[in-house]
């Protein structure tokens, strides 16, 4: 099954009203089993292997076992995400291990300021100029093509 939960590691997000994996899955697949207090993927065949549940789980309880209908066993790809970078471990079927680290953002989380310091050149809601333009284009004025 694509994403799966390691039973021992999942703490059900400490019974908060919604679990992290349930909050994030774009396909509404991750759910909490109320009886066991553990999360599970309710329809693995609808999973995109997008790893969003894996990246968000606070206890690293979720991993991905590649789609069985075309992936031989033994491959393993697991991320560790910090506030500005992501580190990947890639293990091959033949045992070789590779690590990769990539930046994910250049500003502190939450700080995206909509206008980003650019001014809007018009007050006219009917003008084709958009918010922050033309400054954010780096141009004096908007271009156009005529018939």
């Amino acid at each position: 099954m694509p994403s799966f939960v390691i039973t021992d590691k999942c703490d059900g997000c400490k019974a908060l009203d919604k679990t992290a994996c349930q909050y994030i899955c774009p396909n509404d697949l991750m759910v909490l089993n109320i009886e066991t207090g553990k999360a599970f993927n309710r329809a693995p065949e609808m999973c995109w292997e997008c790893y969003n549940c894996v990246k968000i789980c606070p206890t690293q309880a979720i991993e991905v076992r590649g789609y069985a209908d075309f992936m031989p066993l033994g491959g393993y790809v697991q991320p560790m995400r910090s506030s500005n970078a992501i580190m990947w471990s890639v293990k091959f079927r033949d045992g070789q291990l590779k690590r990769f680290k990539f930046p994910t953002r250049t500003t502190p989380e939450g700080s995206a300021e909509p206008d980003a310091g650019f001014e809007t050149g018009t007050d006219n809601i009917k003008s084709p100029l958009l918010r922050t333009e033309p400054q954010s284009l780096g141009l004096e004025e908007l271009k156009k093509i005529e018939e």
Binding site: E49, C50, Y51, V64, G66, Y67, F70, M71, P72, L73, G74, G75, Y76, V77, P79, I86, W88, V90, K91, F92, R93, D94, Q96, K98, F100, F102
Partner: peptide, 20 residues
């Protein structure tokens, strides 16, 4: 090459890993 997959189609990295 690996970042290209890991940023947007992680399954492909997994497939390369599982087929060496």
């Amino acid at each position: 090459a690996w970042e290209d997959f890991l940023d947007m189609t992680i399954s492909q990295a997994l497939l390369w890993a599982s087929t060496n």
